[in-house]
Design a protein around this nucleic acid. Structure first.
Lengths: 157, 157
DNA sequence: CAATCAGGTTTCATTATGCAACCACTGGAG
DNA sequence: CTCCAGTGGTTGCATAATGAAACCTGATTG
């Protein structure tokens, strides 16, 4: 078997995320969906991708519970793809990617848009990682710990 | 040309990020690098990936300025791959992916580790998007605006 | 009910991925 | 210096994923 390694059973949450949204198009589709797109044709037109690929991706995203198929909205017999809460949860990931690009891209002048607070029209803050007590944390100030066994399926406590 | 679409010139910062780190292995390599790995063999052993793929990815990451090749560290004639600031900047993206998994994964009990504050050993907070004035923002409370032309290379201040 | 459109599927060529075998250079033992 | 294992790759080949374009089907329009 020379399959494209899957991380489905992997214990690393990052790998698990990548399993679902770790490919080129999926994140862009979700971006557009957050932006309000819903129809197959809208995605296809906006992203300019091949229809077969789009179809495959949409199906995968639905399977992963990131999109769900909703029946109507404009009364036609066609259906639409709408984000589930899980799908909307990807927003933070997209913001992180955006901000990384804004901060480190070699040609930031080519970036066309900025993310702003809708009310004030002002740019949003950078995402920050904080400790429980509010302290700002850098990479080096964090570490990984084994998950506390969760005492699943209780066996002698 | 039936190439694997590139987003190099794309004006969307998310697409631009994906161009650099939007594939399966790159993010995992960066994760390991943040964790302290530096040598080819370490990456290969830890990630269990094919050596040719690893070699390709490392080269791409170096080209993108995410890793750089450093000469020694233990005195041997071999070289090492170390993260640049740009590479360390990916940390936030990885945290976002991790937290997404923690929140929405269908089998969270399979996640083996948690990210903690090194000092206190307590879990970190969730990443939050805030407005300039500190208000917490959800997707719907944000919007995209055209970048203000930047008046680059100072022309009348 | 003919024409057209939305939403796909099929086909086929091109790339990328993955395993395994191979190769060059290091570093150490003798 | 020589041999040999270990490190850090490259090369070949098989398989899977991508992508463009043609094709098909049911819905909408006229």
């Amino acid at each position: 078997m020379v399959k494209r390694t899957s991380f489905e059973g992997d214990s690393c949450p990052i790998a698990r995320s990548l399993e679902a949204i770790g490919d080129w198009w999926s994140l862009l589709i979700i971006r557009e969906a957050l932006f309000g797109l819903r129809r197959f044709g809208e995605f296809q037109g906006k992203l300019g991708m091949a229809k077969n690929i789009l179809a495959t991706r949409l199906r995968a995203l639905v399977d992963h519970g990131i999109l769900k198929i909703a029946p109507a909205s404009d009364g036609s017999a066609y259906s639409e793809y709408v984000l589930t809460p899980k799908g909307r949860g990807v927003f933070t990931v997209l913001v992180a990617l955006r901000q990384w690009s804004e901060e480190f891209d070699d040609h930031p002048e080519e970036i066309a848009t900025i993310l702003v607070d809708r009310d004030k029209g002002r740019p949003v803050r950078k995402l920050e990682l904080r400790a429980e007590d509010g302290r700002l944390l850098s990479v080096g100030e964090t570490t990984l710990k084994a998950r506390p066994a969760a005492r699943a399926r209780r066996r002698a406590g």
